[in-house]
Design a protein around this nucleic acid. Structure first.
Lengths: 346, 346
DNA sequence: CTGAAAGCGCTAACAG
DNA sequence: CTGTTAGCGCTTTCAG
């Protein structure tokens, strides 16, 4: 062991990695006995145990997880892929997931797939390479069962999470987008609005497509004149909400309600409406989607559709725990309902 | 290999784990040569390489990361501990961190310490057990240098992140809380407010303490009569903001500005003020902290102090990358300034 | 350029 | 109850 100039001990790997062998030597028993002690299995005499414990303490021994995993083929790692762990939405998902694993000895290895199929593919493979004991996937791309299966050449438990209604043939937890979308439009219709604009999210995203579907479906099942309604497609951003609303106003389009693809879009709508001197909901009713934190703090508070995001993560996590524990029973597809949170924008 | 009833192949571990040995057998070269091919080191004849590549492809071979790590003592895992990855704040931190590692072969192992010293300790240890190549820590507790050092019996690069001003003696990236707090109060004072209430965050948190310090300091350096100002301490929640403001109003306390500990508290303040018919900022000026997404969507838009959260994560990540690459040069303590985002609540 | 052999740290029969 | 032994899958000398 060498010491550097400031007197702090400066370790090199070889110096410090204390192994079972050293514990064995110091305690005067065999490696096997040490192993039995640390694994709490097999029978060990009190005397031996005591000696081993003392040696472990003295040396500060901690078992090497790689060696263990190499033998056992178990990593105690749960691999997680979300679209982007840096966003508030997926943070909530992760919050739910971690609740499911709190107190367990599993570690969470989290990656972002960025909604890019290649990246998602790459990420999943390397997670599998790491011998994850289970996988929790919130992907944007529509992976087919075969594709995932090909990736996954081991028999790893997988739970898919998602906002879309696609049954992957895997165990999954989803939030019900279709119904959520319907509920949103219906609340507008019930409030007597008849000229509704839908500011839809990007159509490469399944959830945005679903909501658009429900939009037209609800319109058709109502007494509304379809030609009085229209759809504009754009990104899930405040800017899109702002600009499209401004454009609508400038073009003199006649409408009495806006159904925003999400709360960010709705925030932009508010801005444009306020600038134009339009009153919410008197002149124009607005509804959002997601029930983000800011929805209730907008003025007037925004009516929105609440998705049980954290619950989604929690349930998916629990499902995976069950699968990892024992036999993978039935193929479960859990669907969580979205709920309307009525505030003052309608 | 057995097949189950639905015709899908049902793998067992033994069936599927393809090892270097099998590649060696199929390609007709030794394990060593295969190893050289996959590691791209050592000299291999074109012919051998070709055979090996073909075999790898055919078998779908992927090297076992544990066996590799066991040999190399390198995990390619970066361990991360934040207070709570389920919250929007830390999601942003993580977003920054992942940017720093995008495109590298490092994996991120993320855990939450929940601001609980024991949990944090536990989490860090198990991350170290996993032979992480580096550690990124955003802790709430005041770990001493010695404590972390004791934990870390290997010479692992560590970067500390934080909102407080404590120099840990480790490399770190922090946001400047003191100045941020001062900027907040100053803007109130400059706007002519003289009877200011500070709704401070929980005092077991260093950042809340720092901001409280700056509050009194700024007051003292101004011409304000200290006795016209007061402080209420509570959690970083909307409820706290709401209730304390209501209480203030009910008790008939005379004040013309509220400096909220964060934007959540400010949101509660808004509600109470609106209910009481008070106008913002005419009657009462309000300032928040964090510049959360909802700040600009409140009515009127909330003036707040913006912390470069994502940058914090990014810089910390970059710093760690540097440390992991080569010699750990100087001890760097990076401080990121907070900025005032002026809107209409003052 | 290639193969044989040793060993990373740990676990799990198998004899004692 | 305990020690010996044989690997887990990979890398890396060291001879050839």
């Amino acid at each position: 062991m060498s010491f550097n100039s400031d007197g702090l001990s400066h370790y090199k790997k070889e110096d410090i990695m204390v192994t079972i062998k050293q514990v064995s030597a110091l305690s005067g028993v065999s490696k096997s006995t040490v192993s039995r002690v640390i694994a709490h299995n097999g029978a060990v005499s009190k005397k031996s145990r005591k000696k081993v414990d003392a040696a472990i303490l003295e040396l500060g021994y901690r078992p090497n997880s790689f060696a263990r995993s190499l033998k056992s083929n178990k990593s105690n790692i749960v691999g997680i892929v979300v679209v982007n762990m840096g966003s508030a939405f997926y943070a909530e998902v992760l919050g739910g997931i971690q609740k499911a694993f709190d107190g367990s000895d599993k570690h969470l290895m989290v990656s972002s797939g960025y909604g890019d199929k290649e990246t998602e593919f790459e990420t999943i493979s390397s997670l599998i390479d790491r011998q994850c004991d289970g996988l929790l996937l919130f992907l944007e791309s529509d992976f087919s069962r075969d594709e995932i299966h090909k990736l996954c050449n081991r028999d790893i438990p997988i739970v898919l999470m998602g906002r879309d209604g696609i049954p992957y043939g895997y165990n999954s937890v989803q939030v019900d987008n279709k119904t959520g979308g319907t509920v949103a439009i219906m609340s507008l219709i019930e409030a007597g609005r008849r000229k509704i604009v839908h500011l839809a999210g990007p159509q490469n995203l399944a959830d945005a497509r679903d909501r658009l579907d429900s939009f037209w479906q609800a319109i058709e099942q109502s007494d509304i004149n379809k030609s009085h309604c229209c759809v504009i497609v754009g990104p899930y951003t405040e800017a899109f909400g702002y600009q499209s609303t401004k454009a609508l106003l400038a073009e003199g389009v006649d409408f009495d309600a806006i159904c925003a693809g999400d709360d960010e879009i709705a925030a932009g709508v508010y801005m444009a409406l306020r600038e134009a001197g339009k009153k919410i909901p008197e002149d124009i009713a607005v509804i959002g989607y997601d029930d983000n934190f800011h929805a209730r703090h907008m003025y007037p508070p925004l009516t929105s559709v609440c998705q049980p995001i954290e619950t989604l993560g929690l349930q998916a996590g629990k499902m995976l725990v069950t699968m990892m524990q024992g036999e993978q029973s039935a193929n479960i597809n859990m669907v969580l309902g979205a709920t309307l949170v009525e505030r003052e924008s309608i």
